[in-house]
């Protein structure tokens, strides 16, 4: 949920983009579908996810969703399709970044290694990763020279836990 201050900032931003005062989600609801989609087109990529979170945080999520998808009784328009294509490119992991994304490096950062209770809480998360992800993590974060094979997630976890205890 957005704080009141964040909400005010986003509404001020939308007012500037729209060229008229937007005081609340009700003002957005009052817009026609096409002007609403025109407004989303003016929002830069880096701001679009934040604006969408505004839509979600209001009580009018369903009505605003219908505005973004167009009239349910008519096929989705080009503007709605363009919005979804653009938003999906922002939100979904792209193929060129997926290969480099290692969730263990993100959610088990080295600065957390002294907090064994925290690490223990992430054991199931560690164990459901692929062994390639685990090997990369152990090599990068722990300078592990061992390479674990398919199905050796448990062994990898034991190595990792012993490494933490030795530090």
């Amino acid at each position: 949920m957005l704080s009141d201050d964040d909400l005010k900032v986003i509404l001020s931003y939308l007012s500037a983009v729209a060229g008229k005062t937007v005081r609340s989600a009700d003002d957005l609801l009052a817009m026609g579908t096409e002007p609403f989609l025109d407004l989303t087109e003016k929002i830069p990529d880096e701001a679009l996810p934040i604006v969408v979170s505004l839509f979600k945080s209001t009580l009018h999520g369903r009505e605003l969703f219908i505005k973004l998808t167009g009239d349910p009784d008519e096929p989705p328009g080009k503007k709605a399709a363009a919005f979804f294509k653009r938003y999906s490119n922002l939100v979904l992991a792209q193929e060129d970044t997926t290969a480099n994304f290692n969730p263990l490096l993100l959610y088990l950062p080295p600065e957390s290694f002294d907090d064994l209770a925290f690490i223990q809480s992430r054991q199931s998360f560690f164990l459901r990763q692929t062994v390639d992800t685990i090997n990369e993590f152990l090599k990068t974060a722990c300078r592990c020279t061992d390479i674990f094979g398919p199905g050796q997630q448990e062994e990898a976890w034991i190595w990792y836990w012993n490494y933490l205890l030795r530090r």
Partner: peptide, 15 residues
């Protein structure tokens, strides 16, 4: 993938 994303968006927005 496009239809799946629309569903993902709807469930995120409306529950």
């Amino acid at each position: 993938r496009e239809a799946a994303f629309r569903c993902a968006f709807e469930v995120d927005m409306t529950g």
